[in-house]
Design a protein around this nucleic acid. Structure first.
Length: 136
DNA sequence: ATAGTTTGACCGCGA
DNA sequence: GTCGCGGTCAAACTA
């Protein structure tokens, strides 16, 4: 933080105050900016990223996503290997509201109560398909 | 102005 | 009792 702005550099001065490289590399190296960079496996729900960390245990980057709905205790974790386009999505919990309606965007309404999606995802692993053979 | 995203730091649990 | 890891929150910035 503190990269663009903020008077933090008062100490001394090493001036500069310029930094444009806004690291946008959040996902695995997208190779070229042309071919559709890795798209997140949309499940039909909207997620909000609330954290990202590098798990050294498996040497992978793990991103934490939470359902936009507070009533929805659904959580999603996406992890990938630095250098591998394969993504592994781990679903935790289940959504308590129907799909976000339809609309491709927000809507609202839609479903909502009434049916609880009975898809008890207690930790499903979505293999990117590449070098992640579910081995099974 | 809002939403979404990003990074750092903090906490809890386990070994 | 200590250390490490994993997970979450808050703050800040950008679009």
């Amino acid at each position: 933080m503190a990269s663009t702005s903020q008077p933090a550099m008062a100490t001394a001065g090493s001036g500069h105050g310029d930094e444009q490289v806004q690291r946008q590399a959040t996902w695995p190296e997208e190779a070229d900016g042309g071919s559709q960079p890795l798209v997140m496996p949309e499940d039909g729900y909207q997620w909000k990223k609330y954290g990202q960390k590098f798990i050294k245990n498996i040497q992978k980057i793990r991103s934490y996503f939470r359902c936009r709905d507070r009533r929805c205790g659904a959580k999603k974790k996406v992890e990938w290997q630095p250098g591998d386009p394969s993504l592994r999505v781990v679903y935790d919990g289940a959504h308590q509201h129907g799909s976000p309606s339809s609309s491709s965007s927000h809507g609202g309404g839609g479903g909502q109560d009434g049916d609880g999606n009975r898809y008890e995802l207690s930790a499903q692993y979505f293999g990117g398909g590449a070098p992640t053979p579910q081995a099974r």
